[in-house]
Design a protein around this nucleic acid. Structure first.
Length: 284
DNA sequence: AAAGGGATCAACCGCATTACT
DNA sequence: GAGTAATGCGGTTGATCCCTT
């Protein structure tokens, strides 16, 4: 059965908001607060659908919004967050106070993409340009492509978290190593320049403490305890729901090796933190 | 001054997920 | 558990601005 429309389209305004509409929305939210967007337009006397009101408030009218140009630091932060999170604009926006997901998305598409391309960096993969997009390595876990995050259940488990930054830095280092293999057809000078940009970029990644972490459940008791989270956010949301976790599990199972070793902190299939009993390995 | 084209950004659309009954 | 409503998110569109010719 199809879903009913979110609003009575025949009786709603569309397009740009007028000052009067803005004021009505602001006044109403000041009095009653956010929430129940579906009933808000009627209550506020607006001929708009709830979605439209919500978007207008979040992206434009909210008092805590920071208007104006993005700073260089914000640029770099967005790039780094995007390399970690992909097009999860809402998650990225959560780490940039005063900026909205829509704003960041637009800014990415209009400015940062070009900036990265001029640096010789692929905006989607954050690897060198002209590199085959297929990163089909069994040991590589690409969280940028996991399905949309779920809001349910998957609380981080600090005791078993690993540092996502270290993971990312290693991934960067690997991609740079590949970039040096001179398969791109660039001249040596171009390669050197690109390499310098990438080195700078990878170096910055190390400086940035995003406190992004991934937690792996150590017991079957609570299978909701696994997730990637943005740990320093008051409203941090886990990135992995059940299906994502399945993806993660598959990726790890693709090569039976412990997490430390997957991340390059160990040299064999099992590290000192793993347990081996009766021929079965329990990976850390 | 006008036309054309690219850049920008607010707003919309459709889908996914969650909450509720 | 199934169906429906509400909300949130990411991709896309379209109006407007600005620069170049």
């Amino acid at each position: 059965m199809g879903r009913s429309p979110c609003c009575e389209k025949a009786h709603t305004n569309k397009g740009a908001w007028t000052k009067e509409e803005d004021q009505r929305l602001i006044d109403y939210i000041r009095l009653h607060g956010e929430g129940c967007w579906r009933s808000l337009p009627k209550a506020a006397g607006l001929l708009r659908c709830g979605k439209s009101c919500r978007l207008r408030w979040i992206n434009y009218l909210r008092p805590d919004l920071k208007r104006g140009n993005f700073s260089e630091a914000e640029d770099e932060l967005i790039i780094k967050l995007h390399s970690l999170l992909g097009n999860k604009w809402s998650l990225i926006a959560a780490r940039l106070p005063g900026r909205t997901d829509n704003e960041i998305k637009n800014y990415w598409n209009t400015h940062i993409k070009r900036k990265l391309i001029s640096r010789g960096i692929d905006p989607q993969t954050h690897g060198p340009l002209n590199q085959p997009t297929n990163t089909n390595k069994s040991t590589e876990l690409d969280f940028r492509n996991v399905p949309k995050a779920s809001k349910s259940n998957f609380a981080p488990n600090p005791s078993r978290d690993f540092n996502f930054n270290e993971f990312q830095v290693k991934a960067k280092a690997e991609s740079i190593e590949e970039g040096t293999s001179s398969s791109s057809g660039m001249t040596t000078d171009e390669e050197q320049q690109q390499q310098q940009e990438q080195d700078k970029y990878a170096g910055n990644s190390q400086e940035l403490d995003l406190e992004l972490s991934i937690g792996i459940s150590s017991s079957g008791k609570n299978n909701n305890s696994t997730g990637v989270s943005t740990a320093n956010s008051a409203e941090s949301k886990p990135l992995l729901d059940k299906s994502n976790f399945q993806f993660l599990g598959q990726a790890m199972a693709a090569k039976a090796v412990c997490l430390c070793c997957q991340l390059g902190f160990g040299t064999s299939e099992i590290c000192r933190n793993c347990q081996s009993t009766n021929g079965f390995n329990t990976y850390c």
